[in-house]
Write a protein that binds this DNA or RNA. Sequence first.
DNA 1: GTGAAATTGGAGGTCATCTCCACTTGTCAA
DNA 2: TTGACAAGTGGAGATGACCTCCAATTTCAC
Lengths: 193, 193
Amino acid sequence: MSTQGSAGKPLRADARRNRDAVLAKAREIFDEGTFFDLRFDDFARLAGVGTGTLYRHFPTREALAEAVYRKEVATLCEHARELRGTLPAGEALTSFLRYMVGYIDTYQGLARTLATLMATGTGALAEGSRELEQAVTDLVAAAVAEGAIRDDVSAGAVLVALHGIGAAHDRPDWRTEADGLITLVLAGLRPPS
Amino acid sequence: MSTQGSAGKPLRADARRNRDAVLAKAREIFDEGTFFDLRFDDFARLAGVGTGTLYRHFPTREALAEAVYRKEVATLCEHARELRGTLPAGEALTSFLRYMVGYIDTYQGLARTLATLMATGTGALAEGSRELEQAVTDLVAAAVAEGAIRDDVSAGAVLVALHGIGAAHDRPDWRTEADGLITLVLAGLRPPS
DNA sequence: GTGAAATTGGAGGTCATCTCCACTTGTCAA
DNA sequence: TTGACAAGTGGAGATGACCTCCAATTTCAC
Protein backbone atom coordinates (compact mmCIF):
# COMPACT_ATOMS: atom_id res chain seq x y z
CA MET A 1 0.00 0.00 0.00
CA SER A 2 1.50 3.29 -1.10
CA THR A 3 2.36 6.08 1.29
CA GLN A 4 1.10 8.73 -1.05
CA GLY A 5 -2.12 9.95 -2.55
CA SER A 6 -3.11 9.73 -6.16
CA ALA A 7 -1.29 12.97 -7.02
CA GLY A 8 2.06 11.70 -5.84
CA LYS A 9 2.53 14.07 -2.92
CA PRO A 10 3.54 12.37 0.30
CA LEU A 11 0.67 12.46 2.78
CA ARG A 12 0.88 13.24 6.45
CA ALA A 13 0.50 10.23 8.72
CA ASP A 14 -3.02 11.03 9.86
CA ALA A 15 -4.13 11.80 6.33
CA ARG A 16 -2.84 8.48 5.11
CA ARG A 17 -4.55 6.64 7.95
CA ASN A 18 -7.85 8.24 7.11
CA ARG A 19 -7.47 7.69 3.41
CA ASP A 20 -6.75 4.01 3.94
CA ALA A 21 -9.67 3.64 6.33
CA VAL A 22 -12.00 5.13 3.74
CA LEU A 23 -10.65 2.90 1.00
CA ALA A 24 -10.97 -0.20 3.12
CA LYS A 25 -14.57 0.55 4.03
CA ALA A 26 -15.34 1.42 0.43
CA ARG A 27 -13.99 -1.88 -0.77
CA GLU A 28 -16.18 -3.64 1.77
CA ILE A 29 -19.29 -1.82 0.60
CA PHE A 30 -18.35 -2.31 -3.01
CA ASP A 31 -18.43 -6.05 -2.39
CA GLU A 32 -21.85 -5.81 -0.81
CA GLY A 33 -23.07 -4.01 -3.91
CA THR A 34 -24.77 -1.29 -1.88
CA PHE A 35 -22.29 1.39 -2.81
CA PHE A 36 -24.87 3.48 -4.63
CA ASP A 37 -27.65 3.00 -2.11
CA LEU A 38 -25.72 4.66 0.68
CA ARG A 39 -25.76 8.34 1.53
CA PHE A 40 -22.30 9.66 0.95
CA ASP A 41 -22.36 11.42 4.31
CA ASP A 42 -23.25 8.23 6.12
CA PHE A 43 -20.45 6.55 4.33
CA ALA A 44 -18.02 8.96 5.95
CA ARG A 45 -19.44 8.03 9.36
CA LEU A 46 -19.05 4.34 8.59
CA ALA A 47 -15.43 4.86 7.68
CA GLY A 48 -14.92 6.82 10.92
CA VAL A 49 -14.07 10.18 9.37
CA GLY A 50 -15.88 13.48 8.94
CA THR A 51 -17.61 14.41 5.73
CA GLY A 52 -15.05 17.09 5.05
CA THR A 53 -12.26 14.56 5.19
CA LEU A 54 -14.09 12.21 2.90
CA TYR A 55 -14.63 14.94 0.33
CA ARG A 56 -11.04 16.12 0.56
CA HIS A 57 -9.68 12.71 -0.33
CA PHE A 58 -12.35 11.76 -2.83
CA PRO A 59 -14.20 14.72 -4.32
CA THR A 60 -16.94 12.55 -5.78
CA ARG A 61 -18.45 9.15 -5.29
CA GLU A 62 -16.97 8.15 -8.60
CA ALA A 63 -13.46 9.18 -7.60
CA LEU A 64 -13.70 6.88 -4.62
CA ALA A 65 -15.07 4.04 -6.70
CA GLU A 66 -12.27 4.46 -9.14
CA ALA A 67 -9.64 4.17 -6.43
CA VAL A 68 -11.12 0.86 -5.31
CA TYR A 69 -11.57 -0.31 -8.86
CA ARG A 70 -7.93 0.31 -9.71
CA LYS A 71 -6.73 -2.32 -7.30
CA GLU A 72 -9.10 -4.87 -8.78
CA VAL A 73 -7.99 -4.13 -12.28
CA ALA A 74 -4.36 -4.36 -11.30
CA THR A 75 -4.96 -7.85 -9.94
CA LEU A 76 -6.75 -8.95 -13.09
CA CYS A 77 -4.05 -7.56 -15.34
CA GLU A 78 -1.43 -9.30 -13.28
CA HIS A 79 -3.23 -12.57 -13.83
CA ALA A 80 -3.40 -11.90 -17.57
CA ARG A 81 0.35 -11.37 -17.69
CA GLU A 82 0.96 -14.58 -15.80
CA LEU A 83 -1.16 -16.57 -18.21
CA ARG A 84 0.57 -14.89 -21.08
CA GLY A 85 3.91 -16.10 -19.77
CA THR A 86 2.96 -19.70 -19.05
CA LEU A 87 0.59 -20.76 -21.82
CA PRO A 88 0.41 -20.63 -25.60
CA ALA A 89 -1.33 -17.41 -26.58
CA GLY A 90 -4.57 -19.04 -27.72
CA GLU A 91 -4.97 -20.93 -24.48
CA ALA A 92 -3.97 -17.90 -22.44
CA LEU A 93 -6.80 -15.92 -24.01
CA THR A 94 -9.29 -18.72 -23.46
CA SER A 95 -8.20 -19.15 -19.90
CA PHE A 96 -8.37 -15.44 -19.16
CA LEU A 97 -11.88 -15.02 -20.51
CA ARG A 98 -13.10 -17.96 -18.47
CA TYR A 99 -11.31 -16.55 -15.45
CA MET A 100 -13.01 -13.19 -15.85
CA VAL A 101 -16.42 -14.82 -15.74
CA GLY A 102 -15.53 -16.70 -12.60
CA TYR A 103 -14.13 -13.56 -11.06
CA ILE A 104 -17.27 -11.55 -11.73
CA ASP A 105 -19.35 -14.44 -10.45
CA THR A 106 -17.43 -14.45 -7.18
CA TYR A 107 -17.62 -10.72 -6.67
CA GLN A 108 -21.18 -10.05 -7.74
CA GLY A 109 -21.53 -6.90 -5.69
CA LEU A 110 -18.42 -5.50 -7.24
CA ALA A 111 -19.77 -6.30 -10.68
CA ARG A 112 -23.01 -4.51 -9.95
CA THR A 113 -21.16 -1.48 -8.73
CA LEU A 114 -18.91 -1.40 -11.74
CA ALA A 115 -21.77 -1.82 -14.16
CA THR A 116 -23.53 1.16 -12.62
CA LEU A 117 -20.37 3.20 -12.80
CA MET A 118 -19.74 2.38 -16.42
CA ALA A 119 -23.25 3.24 -17.46
CA THR A 120 -23.31 6.47 -15.52
CA GLY A 121 -20.26 6.98 -17.63
CA THR A 122 -18.52 9.83 -15.89
CA GLY A 123 -15.35 8.59 -17.47
CA ALA A 124 -13.89 8.15 -14.01
CA LEU A 125 -12.99 4.61 -14.89
CA ALA A 126 -11.17 5.60 -18.02
CA GLU A 127 -7.70 4.87 -16.73
CA GLY A 128 -8.47 1.58 -15.05
CA SER A 129 -10.47 0.51 -18.05
CA ARG A 130 -7.65 1.30 -20.37
CA GLU A 131 -5.32 -0.90 -18.39
CA LEU A 132 -7.69 -3.85 -18.57
CA GLU A 133 -8.29 -3.12 -22.20
CA GLN A 134 -4.58 -3.21 -22.86
CA ALA A 135 -4.26 -6.59 -21.18
CA VAL A 136 -6.98 -8.11 -23.33
CA THR A 137 -5.62 -6.44 -26.44
CA ASP A 138 -2.21 -7.95 -25.74
CA LEU A 139 -3.64 -11.42 -25.29
CA VAL A 140 -5.58 -11.13 -28.52
CA ALA A 141 -2.63 -9.75 -30.46
CA ALA A 142 -0.41 -12.57 -29.26
CA ALA A 143 -2.98 -15.16 -30.23
CA VAL A 144 -3.30 -13.61 -33.66
CA ALA A 145 0.47 -13.65 -34.06
CA GLU A 146 0.52 -17.34 -33.24
CA GLY A 147 -2.22 -17.97 -35.75
CA ALA A 148 -4.41 -19.35 -32.97
CA ILE A 149 -7.33 -17.05 -33.80
CA ARG A 150 -8.61 -15.14 -36.82
CA ASP A 151 -7.11 -11.74 -37.50
CA ASP A 152 -10.05 -9.82 -38.92
CA VAL A 153 -11.82 -8.94 -35.69
CA SER A 154 -10.54 -6.43 -33.18
CA ALA A 155 -9.89 -7.04 -29.51
CA GLY A 156 -12.54 -4.40 -28.91
CA ALA A 157 -15.22 -6.88 -29.93
CA VAL A 158 -14.10 -9.20 -27.16
CA LEU A 159 -14.10 -6.31 -24.70
CA VAL A 160 -17.64 -5.42 -25.63
CA ALA A 161 -18.65 -8.99 -24.91
CA LEU A 162 -16.97 -8.80 -21.51
CA HIS A 163 -18.69 -5.50 -20.89
CA GLY A 164 -22.00 -7.17 -21.59
CA ILE A 165 -21.21 -10.00 -19.23
CA GLY A 166 -20.36 -7.56 -16.49
CA ALA A 167 -23.39 -5.41 -17.12
CA ALA A 168 -25.89 -8.27 -17.34
CA HIS A 169 -24.82 -10.03 -14.19
CA ASP A 170 -28.27 -9.66 -12.62
CA ARG A 171 -29.92 -12.00 -15.06
CA PRO A 172 -31.31 -15.09 -13.32
CA ASP A 173 -29.31 -17.50 -15.44
CA TRP A 174 -26.30 -15.26 -15.71
CA ARG A 175 -23.51 -17.77 -15.16
CA THR A 176 -24.71 -20.16 -17.85
CA GLU A 177 -25.32 -17.37 -20.31
CA ALA A 178 -21.98 -15.75 -19.64
CA ASP A 179 -20.18 -19.05 -20.14
CA GLY A 180 -22.23 -19.57 -23.28
CA LEU A 181 -21.26 -16.21 -24.70
CA ILE A 182 -17.59 -16.87 -24.03
CA THR A 183 -17.99 -20.21 -25.79
CA LEU A 184 -19.54 -18.47 -28.78
CA VAL A 185 -16.85 -15.83 -28.92
CA LEU A 186 -14.06 -18.37 -28.65
CA ALA A 187 -15.65 -20.56 -31.29
CA GLY A 188 -16.13 -17.52 -33.49
CA LEU A 189 -12.50 -16.58 -33.06
CA ARG A 190 -11.18 -19.85 -34.44
CA PRO A 191 -9.46 -19.19 -37.74
CA PRO A 192 -11.56 -20.33 -40.71
CA SER A 193 -9.74 -23.49 -41.83
CA MET B 1 -52.07 5.50 -29.60
CA SER B 2 -54.26 4.16 -26.81
CA THR B 3 -56.90 6.22 -25.05
CA GLN B 4 -56.04 4.83 -21.68
CA GLY B 5 -53.25 4.90 -19.14
CA SER B 6 -51.04 2.03 -18.19
CA ALA B 7 -53.50 0.74 -15.61
CA GLY B 8 -56.29 0.33 -18.14
CA LYS B 9 -58.64 2.94 -16.74
CA PRO B 10 -59.98 5.30 -19.39
CA LEU B 11 -58.47 8.74 -18.99
CA ARG B 12 -60.27 12.02 -19.22
CA ALA B 13 -59.55 14.02 -22.36
CA ASP B 14 -57.29 16.59 -20.70
CA ALA B 15 -55.42 13.92 -18.81
CA ARG B 16 -54.74 12.04 -22.00
CA ARG B 17 -53.56 15.18 -23.74
CA ASN B 18 -51.12 15.90 -20.94
CA ARG B 19 -49.91 12.36 -20.79
CA ASP B 20 -49.24 12.33 -24.50
CA ALA B 21 -47.48 15.67 -24.35
CA VAL B 22 -45.19 14.37 -21.65
CA LEU B 23 -44.49 11.19 -23.56
CA ALA B 24 -43.74 13.08 -26.76
CA LYS B 25 -41.32 15.43 -25.03
CA ALA B 26 -39.74 12.52 -23.20
CA ARG B 27 -39.14 10.69 -26.43
CA GLU B 28 -37.49 13.79 -27.84
CA ILE B 29 -35.18 14.11 -24.87
CA PHE B 30 -34.49 10.41 -24.89
CA ASP B 31 -33.14 10.78 -28.38
CA GLU B 32 -30.91 13.63 -27.33
CA GLY B 33 -29.49 11.43 -24.62
CA THR B 34 -29.86 14.12 -21.97
CA PHE B 35 -32.71 12.41 -20.17
CA PHE B 36 -30.72 11.94 -17.00
CA ASP B 37 -29.07 15.35 -17.02
CA LEU B 38 -32.34 17.21 -16.77
CA ARG B 39 -34.07 18.24 -13.58
CA PHE B 40 -37.30 16.34 -13.42
CA ASP B 41 -39.19 19.52 -12.52
CA ASP B 42 -37.79 21.36 -15.50
CA PHE B 43 -38.84 18.48 -17.62
CA ALA B 44 -42.43 19.09 -16.56
CA ARG B 45 -42.10 22.71 -17.65
CA LEU B 46 -40.69 21.65 -21.01
CA ALA B 47 -43.61 19.35 -21.56
CA GLY B 48 -45.97 22.18 -20.61
CA VAL B 49 -47.47 20.63 -17.49
CA GLY B 50 -47.10 21.17 -13.76
CA THR B 51 -44.85 19.02 -11.64
CA GLY B 52 -47.83 17.50 -9.90
CA THR B 53 -49.23 16.34 -13.20
CA LEU B 54 -45.94 14.87 -14.25
CA TYR B 55 -45.63 12.91 -11.03
CA ARG B 56 -49.23 11.75 -11.21
CA HIS B 57 -48.72 10.17 -14.61
CA PHE B 58 -45.19 8.91 -14.05
CA PRO B 59 -44.30 8.48 -10.41
CA THR B 60 -40.60 8.16 -11.17
CA ARG B 61 -38.16 9.03 -13.87
CA GLU B 62 -37.83 5.35 -14.59
CA ALA B 63 -41.56 4.90 -15.05
CA LEU B 64 -41.51 7.57 -17.71
CA ALA B 65 -38.49 6.07 -19.39
CA GLU B 66 -40.16 2.72 -19.45
CA ALA B 67 -43.23 4.10 -21.20
CA VAL B 68 -41.06 5.52 -23.95
CA TYR B 69 -38.95 2.41 -24.12
CA ARG B 70 -41.99 0.20 -24.60
CA LYS B 71 -42.80 1.76 -27.94
CA GLU B 72 -39.26 1.24 -29.16
CA VAL B 73 -39.25 -2.36 -28.11
CA ALA B 74 -42.58 -2.96 -29.80
CA THR B 75 -41.15 -1.67 -33.07
CA LEU B 76 -38.09 -3.88 -32.79
CA CYS B 77 -40.14 -6.95 -31.97
CA GLU B 78 -42.40 -6.24 -34.91
CA HIS B 79 -39.36 -6.19 -37.16
CA ALA B 80 -38.17 -9.48 -35.72
CA ARG B 81 -41.52 -11.07 -36.50
CA GLU B 82 -41.41 -9.79 -40.04
CA LEU B 83 -37.97 -11.24 -40.63
CA ARG B 84 -39.10 -14.45 -39.08
CA GLY B 85 -41.90 -14.67 -41.62
CA THR B 86 -39.92 -13.82 -44.74
CA LEU B 87 -36.52 -15.46 -44.30
CA PRO B 88 -35.09 -18.82 -43.34
CA ALA B 89 -34.55 -18.83 -39.60
CA GLY B 90 -30.76 -18.66 -39.72
CA GLU B 91 -30.81 -15.65 -41.97
CA ALA B 92 -33.57 -14.01 -39.98
CA LEU B 93 -31.42 -14.20 -36.86
CA THR B 94 -28.38 -12.86 -38.68
CA SER B 95 -30.38 -10.05 -40.17
CA PHE B 96 -31.97 -9.11 -36.90
CA LEU B 97 -28.71 -8.92 -35.00
CA ARG B 98 -27.20 -6.71 -37.70
CA TYR B 99 -30.34 -4.61 -37.66
CA MET B 100 -30.12 -4.10 -33.91
CA VAL B 101 -26.61 -2.72 -34.21
CA GLY B 102 -27.71 -0.29 -36.90
CA TYR B 103 -30.69 0.71 -34.82
CA ILE B 104 -28.62 1.49 -31.76
CA ASP B 105 -26.15 3.33 -33.96
CA THR B 106 -28.92 5.54 -35.31
CA TYR B 107 -30.45 6.27 -31.93
CA GLN B 108 -27.33 6.77 -29.89
CA GLY B 109 -29.01 8.97 -27.33
CA LEU B 110 -31.65 6.37 -26.80
CA ALA B 111 -28.99 3.74 -26.36
CA ARG B 112 -27.21 5.82 -23.77
CA THR B 113 -30.43 6.35 -21.87
CA LEU B 114 -31.30 2.69 -21.95
CA ALA B 115 -27.85 1.63 -20.86
CA THR B 116 -28.09 3.92 -17.86
CA LEU B 117 -31.52 2.58 -17.03
CA MET B 118 -30.45 -1.03 -17.25
CA ALA B 119 -27.45 -0.52 -15.06
CA THR B 120 -29.37 1.48 -12.49
CA GLY B 121 -31.43 -1.67 -12.60
CA THR B 122 -34.64 -0.60 -10.96
CA GLY B 123 -36.32 -3.40 -12.82
CA ALA B 124 -38.56 -0.83 -14.48
CA LEU B 125 -37.61 -2.24 -17.84
CA ALA B 126 -38.48 -5.77 -16.88
CA GLU B 127 -41.58 -6.04 -19.03
CA GLY B 128 -40.20 -4.40 -22.15
CA SER B 129 -37.01 -6.39 -21.80
CA ARG B 130 -38.92 -9.60 -21.59
CA GLU B 131 -40.68 -8.84 -24.83
CA LEU B 132 -37.43 -8.23 -26.65
CA GLU B 133 -35.93 -11.26 -25.02
CA GLN B 134 -38.82 -13.37 -26.25
CA ALA B 135 -38.32 -12.13 -29.81
CA VAL B 136 -34.65 -13.10 -29.80
CA THR B 137 -35.39 -16.40 -28.11
CA ASP B 138 -37.92 -17.22 -30.82
CA LEU B 139 -35.46 -16.41 -33.57
CA VAL B 140 -32.80 -18.57 -31.98
CA ALA B 141 -35.19 -21.46 -31.34
CA ALA B 142 -36.36 -21.41 -34.95
CA ALA B 143 -32.79 -21.39 -36.21
CA VAL B 144 -31.94 -24.32 -33.97
CA ALA B 145 -34.99 -26.21 -35.23
CA GLU B 146 -33.83 -25.68 -38.78
CA GLY B 147 -30.39 -26.89 -37.90
CA ALA B 148 -28.94 -23.55 -38.95
CA ILE B 149 -27.10 -23.02 -35.66
CA ARG B 150 -25.73 -25.15 -32.86
CA ASP B 151 -28.15 -26.19 -30.13
CA ASP B 152 -25.94 -26.20 -27.05
CA VAL B 153 -25.89 -22.46 -26.32
CA SER B 154 -28.88 -20.56 -24.97
CA ALA B 155 -30.44 -17.49 -26.53
CA GLY B 156 -29.47 -15.73 -23.32
CA ALA B 157 -25.86 -15.73 -24.44
CA VAL B 158 -26.84 -13.76 -27.51
CA LEU B 159 -28.85 -11.35 -25.39
CA VAL B 160 -25.90 -10.74 -23.13
CA ALA B 161 -23.86 -9.87 -26.21
CA LEU B 162 -26.54 -7.42 -27.31
CA HIS B 163 -26.62 -6.00 -23.83
CA GLY B 164 -22.90 -5.38 -24.06
CA ILE B 165 -23.27 -3.70 -27.40
CA GLY B 166 -25.94 -1.40 -26.03
CA ALA B 167 -24.01 -0.65 -22.88
CA ALA B 168 -20.68 0.02 -24.58
CA HIS B 169 -21.98 2.37 -27.22
CA ASP B 170 -19.76 5.20 -25.99
CA ARG B 171 -16.56 3.51 -27.05
CA PRO B 172 -14.78 5.50 -29.74
CA ASP B 173 -14.73 2.64 -32.18
CA TRP B 174 -18.09 1.30 -31.16
CA ARG B 175 -19.61 0.55 -34.53
CA THR B 176 -16.70 -1.56 -35.74
CA GLU B 177 -16.46 -3.43 -32.47
CA ALA B 178 -20.17 -4.07 -32.31
CA ASP B 179 -20.19 -5.43 -35.84
CA GLY B 180 -17.15 -7.49 -34.96
CA LEU B 181 -18.81 -9.01 -31.92
CA ILE B 182 -21.88 -9.90 -33.95
CA THR B 183 -19.60 -11.52 -36.50
CA LEU B 184 -17.94 -13.54 -33.75
CA VAL B 185 -21.22 -14.61 -32.24
CA LEU B 186 -22.66 -15.62 -35.60
CA ALA B 187 -19.51 -17.52 -36.51
CA GLY B 188 -19.56 -19.17 -33.10
CA LEU B 189 -23.16 -20.18 -33.60
CA ARG B 190 -22.49 -22.17 -36.76
CA PRO B 191 -23.05 -25.86 -36.09
CA PRO B 192 -19.79 -27.80 -35.79
CA SER B 193 -19.71 -29.69 -39.06
C1' DG C 1 9.56 22.16 22.90
C1' DT C 2 7.74 25.27 19.54
C1' DG C 3 5.69 27.27 15.52
C1' DA C 4 4.02 26.70 10.97
C1' DA C 5 1.57 24.01 7.92
C1' DA C 6 -1.42 20.34 6.94
C1' DT C 7 -5.53 18.01 8.16
C1' DT C 8 -9.82 17.30 10.49
C1' DG C 9 -14.96 17.15 11.06
C1' DG C 10 -19.44 18.65 11.42
C1' DA C 11 -22.72 22.69 11.18
C1' DG C 12 -25.19 24.71 7.77
C1' DG C 13 -26.12 26.48 2.84
C1' DT C 14 -27.87 24.93 -1.59
C1' DC C 15 -30.60 22.61 -4.63
C1' DA C 16 -33.30 18.67 -6.82
C1' DT C 17 -37.13 15.69 -5.56
C1' DC C 18 -41.63 14.84 -4.41
C1' DT C 19 -46.20 15.87 -1.74
C1' DC C 20 -50.24 18.16 -0.92
C1' DC C 21 -54.42 20.56 -1.65
C1' DA C 22 -57.15 24.73 -3.21
C1' DC C 23 -58.61 25.46 -7.67
C1' DT C 24 -59.93 24.31 -12.64
C1' DT C 25 -61.79 21.39 -16.19
C1' DG C 26 -64.44 17.64 -18.16
C1' DT C 27 -68.43 14.56 -18.11
C1' DC C 28 -73.03 13.18 -17.87
C1' DA C 29 -77.86 12.98 -16.52
C1' DA C 30 -81.90 15.55 -16.56
C1' DT D 1 -78.32 24.00 -21.75
C1' DT D 2 -77.29 23.58 -17.18
C1' DG D 3 -75.99 22.00 -12.68
C1' DA D 4 -73.33 19.11 -9.85
C1' DC D 5 -69.89 16.01 -9.01
C1' DA D 6 -65.72 13.58 -10.20
C1' DA D 7 -61.30 13.86 -12.16
C1' DG D 8 -57.41 16.31 -12.99
C1' DT D 9 -54.18 20.31 -12.49
C1' DG D 10 -50.03 22.85 -11.01
C1' DG D 11 -47.05 25.20 -8.17
C1' DA D 12 -45.69 26.45 -3.26
C1' DG D 13 -43.18 24.47 0.05
C1' DA D 14 -41.43 20.40 2.96
C1' DT D 15 -37.85 17.06 2.73
C1' DG D 16 -33.40 15.30 2.65
C1' DA D 17 -28.95 14.48 0.13
C1' DC D 18 -24.80 16.71 -1.32
C1' DC D 19 -21.03 19.57 -0.66
C1' DT D 20 -18.44 23.80 1.40
C1' DC D 21 -16.24 26.22 4.76
C1' DC D 22 -13.44 27.32 8.60
C1' DA D 23 -12.24 27.10 13.76
C1' DA D 24 -9.95 23.57 16.21
C1' DT D 25 -6.68 19.90 16.16
C1' DT D 26 -2.73 17.13 14.85
C1' DT D 27 1.71 16.35 12.75
C1' DC D 28 6.41 17.30 11.84
C1' DA D 29 10.85 19.87 10.98
C1' DC D 30 14.01 22.27 13.52
